[in-house]
């Protein structure tokens, strides 16, 4: 468990029994994330995971790292600050579809545009589950929910194309039905220097069970795409859902933008509290 020995999956498991419904995709995401961190040989104390409110948020004490359970839609802002303060940490923001694409959409767009150095994992079950089944920004057209009993009358938002358009430098889609691939996507996202988003299609067995649908309507991309136009084209397909990396580009990340951080993480830099020099300006 110390930072010297290689961590195992046990190091990442907590003593809390999850409260998610049987069959919930969250079990898979939680376990896959733990495995990804083990594969990356990251000691638990070097990882900070932020959480949203909702079924995702209930995962905050189901993994043994430093975790920060934020407000609804606000998983990203604390993650940004943590990274600025100590970029030696692996900072992962997890969040649900409602929190990411509606409540906190401004943070989503800005983080893509500014290529913030964090990994975002969207637990995308296309429904507001913890609040017992209302329409979410990714609920499929025509699907009946508590707030749209006649069927959802809006087209869902497209997390992939919007992220691409906003300037994200790593955009991927995974599915809990393909855990091995999902693990690799999460690892690639964590390794990516700059903003990485993985939209994780999952199933809410209670309010929106799309397991069979995704089983029949997903396929795996042979290799990561590098052409943005091609990425848009494939992402626009609402019949067959590609799984894999839609786009990846290495671009200036936190250290290039802030030369100060090249030397050491902010919290490890000596303080310069002297103001004598600054006062000259006010003479």
């Amino acid at each position: 468990m110390s930072s010297r020995s290689t961590p195992t999956i046990k190091d990442y498991q907590t003593n809390i029994k999850p409260t998610w419904c049987p069959g919930c995709g969250n079990y898979t995401i939680n376990t896959v994330l733990q495995q990804a961190l083990v594969d990356l040989k990251l000691p638990p104390e070097k990882v900070v995971i932020t959480y949203d409110i909702g079924c995702n948020g209930n995962g905050a004490d189901k993994i043994r790292t430093y975790t920060f359970k934020s407000l609804h839609g606000r998983s990203l802002p604390p993650a940004l600050g943590i990274k600025y303060a100590n970029h030696d940490l692996t900072v992962i923001a997890t969040i649900g579809d409602g929190g990411m694409f509606w409540e906190g959409a401004a943070h989503w767009i800005a983080a893509c545009q500014r290529n913030e150095d964090i990994t975002v994992l969207v637990w995308d079950n296309q429904i507001y589950a913890l609040t017992t089944g209302q329409t979410s920004p990714t609920t499929q057209y025509g699907y009946p929910t508590k707030t749209t009993p006649q069927g959802n009358f809006d087209e869902p938002i497209n997390p992939i194309t919007v992220s691409l358009a906003a300037g994200a430098t790593f955009v991927a889609r995974g599915w809990v039905g393909q855990p091995t691939q999902l693990k690799e996507l999460i690892k690639a996202a964590i390794r990516h220097p700059g903003f990485a988003i993985v939209d994780i299609l999952q199933t809410c067995f209670t309010f929106n069970n799309q397991f069979q649908f995704y089983k029949e309507h997903t396929y795996t991309l042979d290799k990561p795409l590098t052409d943005k136009t091609e990425a848009y084209r494939l992402a626009e397909d609402r019949e067959r859902f590609a799984l894999g990396i839609f786009y990846q580009l290495k671009k200036n990340s936190i250290k290039e933008k802030h030369p100060l951080l090249k030397k050491a993480p902010l919290i490890h830099q000596p303080l310069d509290r002297k103001i004598t020099d600054l006062l000259k300006e006010f003479e």
């Binding site: 600050g81 943590i82 401004a106």
Partner: peptide
């Protein structure tokens, strides 16, 4: 020091809390 224009007031306070939590 790091000085950063946030994209919203909510992001400003949220990121400040994150940085403070992490020791800055």
């Amino acid at each position: 020091i790091i000085v950063r224009q946030a994209s919203t007031e909510i992001e400003a306070i949220g990121s400040a809390l994150g940085a403070s939590y992490a020791g800055a």
